[in-house]
C-alpha cells in the first residue's frame, strides 16, 4: 500500500490523461455496481412492484377477466354490508392488537431491564419464544387450547367454578381470541425492540432525574419515553402494517367465522379471490390495505430524510 502511493506520487500522470482515466474508472465502477444490484432490481421489479401495480388493473376487471369494468368492483363492495364489517373488523383487530402488543412489550421490557444483567439473557430467551415459532404452528396450538369440547382453558375455568367460554364459537369471543393470539405472537417483538432501546438510554439521565427528586413515573415519562420515541414509532408502524395484513391467525383459528364476523382484509380476499375464483374482487379487497401502507411509507420516508439531514 505504501509503495503504491509512493509510486503514484513519484510519477504523476499528466493532468488531462489522469482525469479521463479517472472518469472512465468511475463510469466502469458504476456499471459494475449497477450489474451487482441488477438481480435485486429485477426481483423487486418483477415480483413486487409489477404485481402491486397489476393488482390495480386486475381490480378493474370483471369476474371472468374478459372486460374492463372500471370501478364496478369497488361500488359492488361498497354496497355490501359484509365489506364494511370487514373494514371495521380489520381496524379493530389491528389497532387493538398493536396497542396491547406495545403496552405488554413495554411493561415486560422494563421488568427484564430491572433484574440483574446476568439473568436477563435467560429471561429474554424464554420470552421471545412465541415470536420464533412459525405462527401457523403456534396458532394450531391455540386452536387446540380453544377446542369447544376439550378446551384446556375451559377446564381450568370450570375448576375455579366459572362457566366455559365459547372461544371461537361466539362472534364476540372469536374476535377477542384472534386478537389475543396476535398479541401473544407479536408482544415479544416489541419486548426485544424496547429492551434494545432501554439499554441505549444513558444511566446518567436517570441519576440526574433521581437527584431532582423524580419518582418512577416521572422517570418513565420524562426520560425513558422521549429517549425511546423513535424506536417506539418505528416498531408501532411496522407492527401496524404486519397486523393489518395478517392472514395466518384468522385463517387457521376461525377462517372468518362465525358468520363471517372475524374476517380481515387478507382472509376475505383469499376467500373471494383464490377459493371463490373471483380474482378481481379479491384484488379489490386487498387493495384496501394500501391506505395504511401509504401513511406508513410517508412517516418512514420522512424519518429517513430527517435522519439524513441530521447526519
Amino acid at each position: 500500500m505504501a509503495s503504491g502511493i509512493a509510486a503514484e506520487a513519484a510519477a504523476p500522470l499528466p493532468a488531462t490523461r489522469r482525469r479521463s482515466t479517472r472518469r472512465r474508472f468511475v463510469r466502469r465502477k458504476s456499471w459494475i455496481a449497477f450489474l451487482m444490484a441488477l438481480p435485486l432490481i429485477a426481483l423487486i421489479g418483477a415480483l413486487v412492484v409489477y404485481p402491486a401495480f397489476y393488482s390495480l388493473y386486475l381490480a378493474m376487471l370483471n369476474k371472468g377477466m374478459e372486460h374492463f369494468v372500471g370501478l364496478g368492483n369497488f361500488s359492488f363492495l361498497f354496497r355490501r354490508d359484509l365489506f364494511w364489517m370487514v373494514v371495521k373488523q380489520s381496524v379493530i383487530f389491528a389497532v387493538s392488537a398493536v396497542i396491547f402488543k406495545a403496552l405488554i412489550g413495554f411493561v415486560v421490557a422494563h421488568f427484564v431491564h430491572n433484574i440483574p444483567a446476568k439473568g436477563q439473557r435467560k429471561w429474554r430467551g424464554m420470552l421471545l419464544v412465541p415470536w420464533v415459532i412459525p405462527p401457523a404452528m403456534s396458532t394450531l396450538a391455540w386452536f387446540w387450547l380453544f377446542d369447544p369440547s376439550y378446551s384446556a382453558f375451559n377446564w381450568v375455568l370450570s375448576r375455579i367454578g366459572l362457566h366455559g367460554v365459547p372461544w371461537l364459537g361466539d362472534p364476540l369471543w372469536a374476535r377477542f381470541s384472534v386478537i389475543l393470539v396476535n398479541v401473544w405472537y407479536g408482544a415479544p417483538f416489541f419486548l426485544i425492540m424496547y429492551l434494545a432501546a432501554l439499554k441505549s438510554v444513558p444511566e446518567q439521565l436517570y441519576e440526574a432525574a433521581a437527584i431532582d427528586g423524580a419518582n418512577w413515573w416521572q422517570k418513565i415519562w420524562y426520560v425513558t419515553l422521549p429517549m425511546m420515541r423513535n424506536i417506539i414509532a418505528i416498531t408501532v408502524l411496522f407492527s401496524l402494517i404486519v397486523t393489518f395484513a395478517n392472514f395466518d391467525i384468522v385463517r387457521i383459528l376461525t377462517n372468518g367465522g362465525p358468520i363471517d364476523q372475524t374476517h380481515v382484509f387478507a382472509t376475505w380476499a383469499f376467500q373471494l379471490g383464490i377459493e371463490g375464483g373471483d380474482l378481481p374482487l379479491g384484488a379489490c379487497v386487498s387493495l384496501f390495505m394500501f391506505p395504511i401502507l401509504g401513511v406508513a411509507a410517508y412517516f418512514i420516508l420522512r424519518d429517513i430524510n430527517r435522519r439524513g439531514n441530521e447526519a
Binding site: 423487486i44 397489476y54 377477466m65 395484513a245 380474482l279
Partner: peptide, 21 residues
Amino acid sequence: TGVFLTYLIPETLLFIPLFKI
C-alpha cells in the same frame, strides 16, 4: 430507500396479482 419500502408491502397484497401473473 425503495428496497426498504418494498419490505413494507405485505404479501397479502401481492398473492392475488401473482396468482394471475
